[in-house]
């Protein structure tokens, strides 16, 4: 009996880990691509929130979950294009622009939420949400079927995005140019690569992925929206990129691991164990710092990350 319970708990933790990992993975893949082009986008948290809100409102108004995903993703692209105008065109300090976008993303969402839904009531509005998609056949596999093949379709997208992104970065001319721009924009420029265009596209992709992640939070996982819905996930995505040392495989490990910690924490929270769950929650961030220190000699961080490129100025 006890064994059965433990197994059931372990299973539900793993299922939860993959679910929780989904938005982290999506956002981290996007941020990784953005950073590989040399732009440090700290505005993920605001992007997540804004996209979550837009998809939520879309579903509320149109009753179309498909449009919800579409507009949520577009909202993410929109935020990242603002970032692009600020940092690529006007060379505003990337850190500052990212922080400003966080404030704007959260503030806008909160404001519009009240403007759209305010009827004086205090109850949180809710909309329909996507159901889990069980993959026929595969979902019947014991344990693995539940963990990997009874998830939201966006979760499958996130997992499929890993090899696709890898191929795009490593097996296409565009990917080659993107990686070069992040490591040595002057060299790429002299070779005729359009730096600004690459960085705009990289930011747009990052925004698209963060937009999907935000969509996941509102119209996949919950059907709710509230201003703190991102709950630091934008920052965790950033941490995962560093933890993963800008490598997709390790980013996947990082996302699932961070998702596991949270799922585990949620489980023990309900059971009242002695393990200090808050310290468990701090672990990802401590590990990220440790990873930075350990990896410093063989870091894959883009060499020109965070430094605006001006032709002729090094």
């Amino acid at each position: 009996m006890g064994d059965y319970l433990t197994t059931a708990v372990a299973l539900s933790v793993m299922v939860g880990a993959v679910r929780i990992a989904t938005p982290l993975l999506l956002a981290a893949i996007g941020e990784m691509v953005t950073e590989r082009s040399g732009i440090l986008n700290l505005g993920i948290e605001g992007t997540l929130t804004f996209a979550a809100f837009i998809s939520f409102v879309t579903v509320d108004r149109t009753d179309s979950l498909v449009l919800g995903v579409l507009f949520g993703a577009l909202a993410g692209v929109l935020v990242s294009l603002v970032m692009a105008v600020l940092t690529v065109t006007f060379k505003v300090e990337q850190v500052v622009a990212g922080l400003a976008l966080n404030l704007l993303g959260v503030g806008f969402s909160f404001y519009l939420l009240r403007a759209v839904f305010d009827d004086g009531g205090t109850d949180v509005p809710s909309v329909q949400s996507w159901n889990v998609v069980e993959i026929p056949g595969l979902s019947a596999i014991p344990w693995f079927g539940d963990v990997l093949f009874s998830q939201h379709w966006l979760t499958y997208v996130a997992f499929v995005a890993i090899p696709l992104t890898w191929l795009a970065l490593n097996r296409t001319g565009f990917g080659l140019e993107l990686r070069s721009v992040g490591d040595n924009p002057a060299a790429a420029d002299l070779r005729g690569v359009n730096i600004n265009r690459i960085q705009y596209l990289a930011l747009a992709f990052g925004g698209l992925m963060a937009g999907l992640a935000g969509t996941f939070l509102s119209i996949f996982a919950t059907g709710l929206f509230f201003p703190t819905i991102a709950a630091g996930r934008g920052w965790i995505a950033l941490a995962i990129v560093i933890f993963g040392n800008w490598r997709l495989g390790r980013i996947l490990v990082g996302a699932v691991f961070f998702g596991y910690l949270e799922a585990y924490q949620l489980t023990i929270q309900g059971q009242g164990t002695d393990v200090p769950q808050q310290l468990l929650l701090a672990l990802p961030f401590v590990l990220t710092i440790v990873a930075l220190v350990i990896n410093r000699s063989r870091s894959n961080a883009p060499i020109h990350l965070g430094v605006p490129y001006l032709r002729g100025v090094r």
Binding site: G173, F174, L176, S180, A188
Partner: peptide, 20 residues
């Protein structure tokens, strides 16, 4: 671009955006 291989450095800017 120091982290890239010679073949990639040479290919940079000579290819289209598509399959490398």
């Amino acid at each position: 671009v120091m982290p890239l291989a010679t073949v990639e450095n040479v290919a940079l800017g000579t290819t289209g955006a598509g399959w490398l």
